[in-house]
């Protein structure tokens, strides 16, 4: 097995007295897609936000390609650009066109040739079928389109790993498919991905590994067939029984 792209060691995080993550260990191999499942409040979102250091962790360590990125005092901007994240609520910048949303960070952070960046951004829009909407403002786009623009915006920084925080949870059911399709496409291209999701069908079909979280720990993890068909732990069984009906 090659060296892990991302490793979490005994990650602990609390908000005040509320312990949200109680010791998380996780290794993500290059090109692997991991789905975090579990009830709301089980710590999935917090885990993602601790991976890209949006939330500083209290204890333990997060390694990106062997480098401890959770060390307090580290300059985080160069690290964050290597980790793309997409949120449930899209969080596009409403005062910019879709294209400008995508180009802002490359222009300000990566610098380099403007024409080349624009060409690359346009290629991304093309790849995800959004070329006709490039010059629209976010409020002129459907939820699904906005979310795909948010994915493109993260990809434009050429991240080494992508985090997805329940990115279909705010979408109308008929728009979920187009966003999941983007994820399939990324997976086929070998992107390393960690996603928190309530889409059990998708997790089962597309994930390399599924982690069931409950109460701030990973209760059970394994290949999707194993987790969904033959969960070993009682808590996993109860959760799956509740959501798969």
């Amino acid at each position: 097995m090659p060296e892990a792209k991302l490793s979490l060691r005994a990650v602990v995080k609390s908000f005040g007295d509320n312990a949200v993550l109680k010791g998380i260990d996780l290794d993500v191999a290059p090109g692997e897609m991991i789905c975090l499942i579990g009830a709301s409040g089980s710590g999935k979102s917090t885990l993602l936000r601790c991976i890209n250091q949006l939330e500083p962790i209290d204890d333990g360590a997060v390694f990106l390609e062997g480098q401890d990125i959770s060390e307090p005092g580290l300059d985080l901007a160069p690290i964050r650009r290597r980790i793309g994240i997409v949120f449930q609520s899209y969080n596009l910048f409403p005062h910019m066109t879709a294209l400008d949303n995508v180009l802002l960070a490359p222009r300000r952070v990566l610098r380099g040739d403007v024409a080349e960046q624009r060409a690359r951004a346009e290629a991304l829009f093309d790849r995800f079928g959004l070329a006709p909407h490039m010059l629209k403002y976010p409020d002129q786009l459907s939820g699904g389109q906005q979310q795909r623009v948010a994915v493109i915006r993260a990809l434009a920084m050429q991240p080494e790993i992508m985090l997805f925080d329940e990115i279909t949870a705010a979408l109308d059911p008929e728009l979920v498919g187009e966003v999941l399709q983007v994820l399939r496409q990324l997976r086929a291209e070998g992107m390393t991905m960690v996603l928190a999701t309530h889409e059990m069908g998708f997790a089962r079909e597309a994930a390399d590994r599924v982690c069931f979280m409950d109460g701030g720990v990973i209760v059970e993890e394994g290949p999707p067939q194993e987790i969904f068909s033959a969960p070993k732990r009682a808590r996993t069984q109860a959760f799956l029984k509740a959501v798969l009906r």
């Binding site: 890209n52 949006l54 985080l76 901007a77 160069p78 964050r80 650009r81 980790i83 793309g84 994240i85 949120f87 609520s89 969080n91 596009l92 910048f93 409403p94 005062h95 802002l104 960070a105 300000r108 952070v109 915006r153 993260a154 920084m157």
Partner: peptide
């Protein structure tokens, strides 16, 4: 705050986040 989060998650500096993301919306 999610606007600021989105910006710094893209690797933008605090300064650029203020200048390109927060201020234009605030002023409007």
């Amino acid at each position: 705050a999610s606007q600021r989060n989105a910006a710094i998650c893209l690797g933008l500096s605090e300064r650029d986040t203020m200048r390109y993301v927060i201020l234009p919306q605030a002023i409007r």
